[in-house]
């Protein structure tokens, strides 16, 4: 059997290449799908804000609804776990009513571990 001819045949090469790409992508997903979404909340000067509520809004077919809420630690960091979603929005809120802009989150696969760019809460309006 002429293995070289078989392995260079386009009917073998293309499906094989596709299978390798799909396999590699699935291995990558399996290693990065713990559902962790992490980030920080900061003020306009870049200082971390502890005690801010960070809310994750999950998309349903019509709008976005709150799914989970966590509080930032002393370093202003937050961490969501077991987030089995691929799209949503993040917003940080302070008890005094100030809040960050809602950040759209689009992930490449469900439950992708993600480090979000800092959510910025502006100064109180006078």
């Amino acid at each position: 059997m002429n293995w070289k001819a078989i392995l260079t045949n386009r009917f073998v090469v293309l499906p094989l290449a596709l299978a390798i790409i799909v396999g590699a992508w699935n291995i990558y997903i399996a290693l990065h799908d713990d559902g962790l979404i992490t980030g920080e909340v900061r003020d306009a000067s870049g200082a971390p804000i502890p005690g801010a509520a960070v809310i994750f809004f999950e998309r349903n077919f019509i709008n976005y609804q709150e799914k989970q809420r966590v509080t930032t630690d002393a370093r202003g960091a937050f961490r969501f776990t077991d987030m089995n979603v691929h799209v949503g929005q993040l917003e940080a809120r302070l008890p005094d009513g100030r809040n960050s802009e809602r950040r759209q989150l689009q992930l490449w696969f469900r439950a992708q571990n993600t480090l979000v760019a800092p959510l910025i809460i502006g100064a109180a309006k006078s």
Binding site: H86, V87, Q106, L107, W108, F109, R110
Partner: peptide
């Protein structure tokens, strides 16, 4: 351009 529409379809 982005590929997130394809991710949407998948899920």
């Amino acid at each position: 351009p982005h590929l997130f529409n394809y991710v949407d379809v998948w899920y």
